[in-house]
Design a protein around this nucleic acid. Structure first.
Lengths: 164, 164
DNA sequence: TATATACTAAGACTCAGTCTCAGAATATAT
DNA sequence: ATATATTCTGAGACTGAGTCTTAGTATATA
């Protein structure tokens, strides 16, 4: 299976993406319907984790209950991954096998999340270190998550202006 | 919950802890009441982040609404820190200035969270690396969070027995 | 064309978490 | 000591993100 290059030529990879998603859905007995496709296209085109609010804004024709169901279905098909950010709202992104391994900048002001790619050397080192710590506690590690919390550029500027 | 303090020298630091907590509360105009003290003692004695369910079980005399309020008050006093784990429930721990910098093992089976301490060398390297990535995106980083997701020993054993 | 299965929209429902308010506890003033 | 002000607490109503139900629609297979 082709390892799905991510950011550079997103246009040319779209057809592949949809083929892969369709196959993943089919393998769990689900169809690739227009509603699900709209969600996948939003996640792929957005380039960062999106909240339900983002989805409602971008896809007003998709009812909230359907959006939740699509996300749940795509998650059972291993196409979508749900994350919890700095605020109380869940966010959703394509799984790392489609987008590549990455981490997140989470703004404690507005809650927005931005993807960041790390270096291979750091990743290798961190994974090895963390897995060793986990195993020392009897854990079987499956993945790690590294987030940087802080203020995005917009919120930093806003905080400088507002004293309250 | 039975006391079971994991380290004997925790006993000696308790008085200091309460003095510090009292001072933090006083600085924001709050008193160190028995209810708040019970929560702080639970967090300090437990040694890992606890959920509201844990608190209700350990402190059945503290009503849920009071527990939430105590946690919120302690958070505004910079004594308690709220984290979101692998499940949907928030968990609470003492701030790192009281417990030391650490990271978390999060079980995707039962949701329990365990503290892990990392090496100073790794921390320095990771912080430097992550801060650089954040600043490249216009973020002002304030902290980072490194979690290892996996299955705890109990859930690994249970998963081995249950095929479904 | 018929039948089965999967899908969707709308809204009722759940429940972790928040808010309100009246009364209790504590601090300060007299 | 008594009065007064302020904070704290418990009980329960309330909120809203997320889930579930249901009736009807679309698609696949025969």
């Amino acid at each position: 299976m082709p390892p799905a290059p991510s950011s550079a030529d997103r246009e040319s990879g779209t057809a592949d993406l949809h083929a892969v998603v369709a196959e993943h859905l089919r393998s769990v007995g689900l169809r690739y319907t227009p509603g699900r496709r709209a969600v996948v296209e939003l996640l792929a085109g957005c380039g960062h984790p999106v909240s339900i609010g983002d989805i409602e804004r971008a896809l007003p024709s998709v009812p909230r209950s359907s959006a939740y169901r699509h996300l749940a279905d795509l998650e059972t098909a291993s196409v979508v991954h749900r994350i919890t950010g700095a605020d109380e709202f869940a966010r959703y992104e394509l799984v790392e096998t489609l987008t590549g391994h990455h981490h997140h900048l989470m703004c404690t002001g507005c809650g927005n999340v931005v993807d960041i790619a790390s270096s291979a050397a750091f990743e290798r080192m961190a994974a090895e270190h963390l897995d060793r710590l986990a195993e020392a506690e009897g854990f079987v590690p499956t993945s790690h998550r590294i987030d940087v919390l802080g203020r995005c550029a917009a919120c930093t500027a806003a905080a400088g202006a507002v004293s309250y």
